[in-house]
């Protein structure tokens, strides 16, 4: 049986790349929507900041855990 394609190295790096797509889109949406909200109603800036912060915290946590998988997925 002939080998048509071969991957060398650790495939987990591809996994991290895939895992980073979600948080990247998430943080982009959170910040972008906050900008839209403040532009429409500047007096809500403080309230929207808190919501933006908690949104960023949850999305970046996924990316953070994704990087930390380097410690268990590599030999």
């Amino acid at each position: 049986m002939s080998v048509l394609a071969e991957v060398s190295g650790n495939i987990a790096t591809v996994g991290y790349g895939l895992a980073a797509i979600g948080p990247a889109i998430g943080v982009g949406i959170v910040v972008g929507k906050t900008i839209e909200g403040v532009a429409r109603q500047p007096e809500l800036q403080g309230k929207l900041q808190v919501l933006m912060w908690i949104g960023i915290a949850f999305t970046e946590a996924l990316a953070f855990i994704g990087i930390a998988t380097y410690f268990i997925f590599t030999k």
Binding site: Q45, G46, K47, Q49, V50, W53
Partner: peptide, 11 residues
């Protein structure tokens, strides 16, 4: 300062 300041400080 924005009204979010005390909450962030507490966080």
């Amino acid at each position: 300062v924005p009204s979010s300041q005390p909450i962030l400080l507490r966080a």
